[in-house]
């Protein structure tokens, strides 16, 4: 299978000759620890065939102005305080860094420029609401971590919501879910419609009582 081969430790020993040959070809590197492990060898040849792209200059992450760290329990409590139906929160880390609000506003503007630069337009399934939201989250964390945030990932995630009331250019809909961005900045919880850049504090978000879940 080209770049990756799966094999168990016993099989590794039995086929050491093959392994050496494959290693010489740069196809696989074994890892002698626990469980079945295969190391993926980055395919630099394929990478070199990709053209380079340049993204618009992003706002410098304001680490010194970032807020403290917000635990998942604190985020859940904030949702509980503001909404009638607090959503389930899926998370990996127990706490998240609250970015500076001015940086968030600047990043949101940048994200609109990024969409234009990459010519990202809505396409059913391939590039739809959840893709816009996840793209925002991915790049926000990339800019923050690359900008020197060493305390961990920032409090930005995407949420699914029943879009019962229009917001940010998205018409109200009685059926089906919609994906938006949630950010816990130093100024509180905010909702962003990533397709238009419209931002609102959670208490002002018209669908605040119809969240389904939040993915941080």
């Amino acid at each position: 299978m080209g770049g990756v081969t799966h094999r168990r430790a016993a099989a590794d020993r039995a086929r050491s000759g093959w392994r050496i040959a494959l290693l010489m070809l740069g196809a696989v590197a074994p890892c002698g620890a626990s469980g079945t492990v295969t190391l993926i060898v980055p395919d630099l040849a394929a990478l070199s065939r990709l053209p380079s792209i340049t993204l618009p200059p992003s706002p410098v992450y304001a680490r010194d102005r970032a807020g403290g760290v917000w635990s998942v329990d604190e985020i859940a409590a904030e949702f509980g305080r503001i909404t009638d139906r607090p959503p389930a929160i899926n998370f990996n880390r127990p706490a998240f860094v609250r970015p500076d609000h001015r940086w968030l506003v600047a990043f949101n503007d940048w994200f609109m420029r990024l969409q234009k630069a990459l010519k990202l337009a809505y396409r059913d399934e391939v590039w739809d609401c959840d893709d816009f939201a996840r793209c925002f989250v991915a790049f926000a964390n990339m800019v923050a971590l690359g900008g020197g945030e060493t305390r961990g990932s920032i409090c930005v995630g995407w949420a699914t919501v029943a879009n019962l009331r229009a917001f940010g250019g998205q018409a109200a809909s009685s059926g089906g879910g919609h994906a938006i961005v949630i950010v816990g900045s130093a100024d509180g919880l905010f909702v962003i419609e990533p397709q238009s850049g419209k931002m609102a504090a959670l208490p002002d978000y018209p669908n605040r009582d119809s969240f389904v879940e939040v993915n941080l």
Partner: peptide, 30 residues
């Protein structure tokens, strides 16, 4: 080596592949 959140890198790769699909194919599949 620092506080690590694997969802960041999974999201980045997920986003990257879907951007590529949206820009370079006419497929309707994610």
């Amino acid at each position: 080596l620092r506080p690590y959140d694997g969802t960041v890198y999974a999201s980045l790769l997920e986003t990257a592949t879907n951007i590529a699909a949206a820009r370079h194919t006419q497929r309707t599949l994610a």
